[in-house]
Design a protein around this nucleic acid. Structure first.
Lengths: 260, 260
DNA sequence: CGTGCCAGGTGCCAT
DNA sequence: ATGGCACTTGGCACG
């Protein structure tokens, strides 16, 4: 793959190359001195500074400072990028509709532009998600409670879909909510809503159990669970419990030419 | 500001320049063919492809494909970047502790590297946040209810902080939860928890009001509100209601040299 | 499309 | 550090 790289280009050169890059479907990286304005779901204004602007062919625009994982300003995929020279500055404007939003990046000077055809796999298969936890529970339901029998996943209720629905040893309905990490009060509220919804479905007086499966819960969440008569089962993500074979550790020693 | 730009550098050149850029505190943009592996709170693996890697001096690492606002892989601020040449590939590894996480980007070829001193303002003052909505409510409490008198914001309860707490025309406690956008069942649950907490504080039988202030609510949220005996007040973010003067629209027509 | 919910959420601020 | 929550949350799957 080839790269177009412009070193301290004039606005006119930048404009020209942006046009070409958009046409090719390249991803563009721009370093330069700029101001940023945003108006849409909210509104914001950012004073002058040296920043990184990334423009993607899917309409994504990202303005990054030297800190933070989150861009200081951005435009979501589906937006449309346009560039113009105006008042002696290079303006990159990205707009979208529904909701109507505009991002305006004005460069007093562009110090570098690189355009490149970014391609290849976009999706990673992440291991350790809630889906994995669900699989683990279905594989070994006794983790939830002795005698627990799963009957459905994503079972619909008036309050939304229940992660795992089943019956306990006595045949009473049980609602299970899964969380891959330590949870606070919000998760308890979610579980409580599901339990209430199932109680409304069942004949009056039917006891409906509620179990929150998560690595741990905060104090406040624990109190709420107690108040609501709900249970918590501690299941670490990836209850490895394997036969002792550790995941191999790659590339730990023996590096040469290491830097940083 | 000056930029260092390498066009299709050798791994050795890349390594050298990365070291220099890290030392200078530059932000780095790398285009190239790479694979990515991550292990930490979850784990993931990404096959070969042409991508953009951004390295920040605060320890942030971002791997971007040609789509999406969210990086396909990343490392949060506070991580430490290191680079090495290994098995004929350039490896950039970013690690952090607590939680222990590792990001590994292996380049078979680097097509472009640019390093640049990103500086200047990092924070934008966003207008239209929940805080603005709160100010609006305090300025005109009758928006919540006729005769409503705010008494505290962020008032602590057993269930967490209440956005706005006050009394109604009858002197009864009222809990107000603010949302800057259309809300679903979760917000109702949140409000309900606060109302319950205040009810427990008050003498038995004291009626405690609960008002959800949001632009709109979903059907299911409306049902839940009705069940719980809570109210919804529709307040659009920035209830402009100004004297008719429109916000001036800047830069709408008259563009020359427009592109895209 | 909107509704609902997970996410390696991130970020901010409080204790 | 942990906790609780807002966020221009983003992203996906389903009706």
């Amino acid at each position: 793959m080839s790269v177009v790289s412009l070193h301290e280009p004039s606005h006119r050169e930048t404009l020209w190359e942006l046009e070409a890059a958009f046409a090719r479907g390249d991803t563009v990286s721009v370093f330069g001195e700029c101001t940023v304005e945003y108006d849409g779901r909210a509104a914001s204004s950012l004073g002058p500074g040296a920043r990184l602007l990334v423009l993607k062919p899917d309409g994504t625009a990202l303005v990054h400072t030297d800190e933070g994982r989150t861009p200081v300003n951005w435009q979501p995929p589906g937006s449309e990028h346009r560039a113009a020279v105006r008042d002696g500055r290079l303006r990159v404007r990205s707009t979208r509709t529904n909701p109507s939003e505009t991002l305006n990046v004005r460069f007093s000077a562009v110090d570098h532009l690189a355009a490149y055809a970014v391609t290849g796999g976009r999706s990673v298969d992440v291991v350790g998600s809630e889906a994995d936890l669900k699989a683990r529970i279905l594989e070994e339901p006794s983790l939830v409670a002795d005698g627990f029998e799963p009957q459905a996943t994503e079972r619909e209720t008036d309050a939304g879909p229940v992660d795992v629905f089943g019956v306990d040893a006595d045949g009473h309905p049980v609602v299970v909510e899964l969380k891959r990490r330590r949870v606070g009060p919000d998760a308890v509220g979610q579980l409580a809503r599901y339990v209430s919804a199932v109680e409304r479905e069942e004949p009056d007086g039917t006891p409906v159990g509620g179990v929150l499966v998560a690595p741990s819960v905060t104090d406040r969440a624990a109190e709420l669970l107690a108040e609501e008569g709900l249970d918590h089962v501690a299941v670490d993500r990836l209850v490895a419990e394997t036969d002792g074979t550790e995941l191999e550790e790659t590339d730990v020693v023996g590096d040469d030419d290491t830097v940083g």
